[in-house]
Structure formats: C-alpha cells, structure tokens
C-alpha cells in the first residue's frame, strides 16, 4: 500500500510566476511558433471564404480580424523565440517526459474505450491503471480508489442528474446485464 517517493525530475519551468522572464528556449518552441502561424493563416482563409474582406457585416469579418492578430502575434513570437538560448535537454525530457506522455496516451485510450466498453468499466480500468502507474505500485489501493470513484460518479451523475453515461456495446452479451448499468 505504500508508494515509493521518487527522485526529483528535470527542472520545472515556472509559468505561473508572470513576472519571471524565461531566458531559455524550450525544445520544440520554434516549430510550435510556426504551427501557430499556420493556424492563423487557416483562420484568415476561412474568414476570406466568408467574405470577410468584402463587406463590413459579413460573417467572415471577425475571423479575418482574429486571424490577422494571430498571424502578427505569431510572427513576433517566432522572432522573440529565436533570440533565446536553447535550454539543455530534448523534447522528450523537458516537454513530454515519460509521466506526461504515458498519461496522455492512457487518457486517449480511456476516451476511445468509453463508447465501446461503457463508462463504468472503462473508468474503473483507467483509474486503477493510472494510479498504479503514477504511484509506482499499490494495486489494492488503486483498485479501492477507482471503485469508490466510479460509484460516486454513478450516484451523482446517473442517479441524481439523470445523465445517461455511455453504456458500452462491446461486452453486452458477455457480462451479466446488471453489471454495466
């Protein structure tokens, strides 16, 4: 039941402290800037399709304006990024360390499983799995927490607020009827 404490990881970039100015360029920051620029151009293109350049009251006016602001800011951001010295360590260490990358994959798998397997089973497995991983052990604890959570969610959302949670169709014939409800 005990979770082993873990050694500290790579230095964490502090984004909360607004007044602290970052001096280093994070890995992937320049490509990210270009992705943002592309996004801006896409927004402007859609605005253009909606006659944003033609009439003051066209549906495309605000998209064109928003896209233009995005594009200009993206250019400024890219130029600013180039001036920074690169931070030590690659993308996999600073931006997508194993804990983050694996967790994101687990969430994605969980979401994909919601409809076929149903909310209850998917959540049970996901929660137990991710807690087990993040705590590096403690199967009993992980199972207990996930079971309690699923029951709590069921009571609040399904019973009180009559939200119809995904029921799942994959295992319909296999599991006894009462189990997924």
């Amino acid at each position: 039941m005990t979770a082993r404490p873990r050694p500290g990881r790579a230095p964490f970039p502090r984004n909360h402290a607004m007044h602290e100015i970052r001096r280093q360029r994070e890995p992937g920051e320049t490509p990210f800037g270009f992705v943002l620029l592309l996004l801006s151009l896409g927004v402007m293109a859609e605005g253009h399709r909606l006659q944003g350049f033609e009439a003051l009251s066209a549906p495309g006016v605000v998209p064109v304006a928003a896209g233009a602001v995005m594009a200009l800011s993206a250019l400024v951001i890219i130029l600013g990024t180039r001036r920074l010295a690169p931070a030590p360590g690659g993308f996999a260490r600073r931006i997508a360390p194993r804990d983050v990358a694996l967790s994101v994959l687990m969430i994605a798998a969980y979401m994909a499983a919601l409809e076929p397997v149903g909310f209850h089973l998917a959540t049970l497995v996901f929660l137990a799995g991710i807690i087990l991983y993040l705590r590096r052990g403690g199967l009993g604890f992980a199972l207990a927490v996930s079971l309690a959570s699923v029951i709590a969610v069921h009571v609040v959302f399904r019973m009180v607020f009559t939200v119809v949670l995904p029921q799942g169709w994959l295992l319909r014939g296999i599991l006894p009827p009462g189990l997924l409800q």
Partner: peptide, 18 residues
C-alpha cells in the same frame, strides 16, 4: 498528486460528457 490528478482527469471527462 498521483491520486488527485487521475481523479481530476476522470471528473473532467464526466463533466464534459454531461
């Protein structure tokens, strides 16, 4: 956090779904 973060994630999923 190893327990709280997963719970936040599930709550986010259920909340968004509803």
């Amino acid at each position: 956090p190893a327990v709280l973060i997963p719970l936040i994630l599930v709550l986010s999923v259920v909340g968004t779904y509803s």
